[in-house]
């Protein structure tokens, strides 16, 4: 993806081999464009998540094709589907195992709010147990909606003050 990024202007004729930028801009640029997902596929939304990874929609255009199924190597948990109360502690534990910085996308009506499952068995929104960055509407959302959420998350990441957090932590 080509974006106009004035923070990272580089002209080799003027600057030679030296690139001058801000730490925030460089860190956020790297983070936003290699957002490795932790696919938390729990229901039919996971089928759309798989479609988003396939050639027609190609989530790799956004640097997010590396579905690792391993919380240690991932940056963004995509909760795709209905979270039951039985599954909720597992989702939270996997989120806890992810290394910071980490983000969460709640994909679809069920993950966002419990959806049509107003029931004794269903968690009424995954934000009751983990902090959510982007919510996607739809039941299930189309792959384009997931890509839109990913772009929204990239925009959010690019606004963060990463450097100060890096050195204060």
């Amino acid at each position: 993806m080509v974006t106009a990024n004035s923070e990272l202007a580089y002209d080799s004729k003027i600057e030679g081999d030296v690139i001058v930028t801000r730490a925030d801009a460089a860190i956020n640029w790297m983070r936003a464009n290699s957002m490795w997902p932790m696919p938390m596929g729990l229901a039919c939304c996971a089928i759309e998540l798989m479609a988003a990874a396939s050639s027609r929609f190609d989530i790799a255009r956004f640097g997010a094709e590396v579905m690792r199924f391993s919380p240690r190597q991932s940056d963004c948990m995509i909760v795709a589907g209905t979270v039951t109360y039985k599954m909720a502690p597992v989702v939270r534990r996997i989120y806890d195992q992810m290394a910071a910085p980490k983000w969460v996308i709640a994909m679809g009506a069920c993950a966002s709010s419990g959806g049509m499952y107003r029931s004794y068995a269903t968690l009424q929104g995954v934000d009751r147990i983990i902090p959510v960055d982007v919510y996607i509407s739809g039941c299930p959302p189309r792959p384009e909606a997931l890509l839109d959420a990913l772009m929204k998350l990239q925009a959010k990441v690019k606004r963060e003050h990463s450097a100060s957090k890096l050195f204060s932590a």
Binding site: Y85, K86, A88, P89, R92, R93, G114, R118, S119, Y120, A121, T122, Q124, R128, I129
Partner: peptide, 28 residues
């Protein structure tokens, strides 16, 4: 048993302590 469900604890006490959440009644 009501359709909305009854409040109860999650299965994992660690997660309950950390999130402060549990099962809630979810009426239509």
């Amino acid at each position: 048993f009501p359709l909305a469900g009854l409040p109860a604890e999650l299965s994992d006490p660690d997660i309950t302590a950390e999130t402060g959440t549990g099962l809630i009644s979810a009426p239509m």
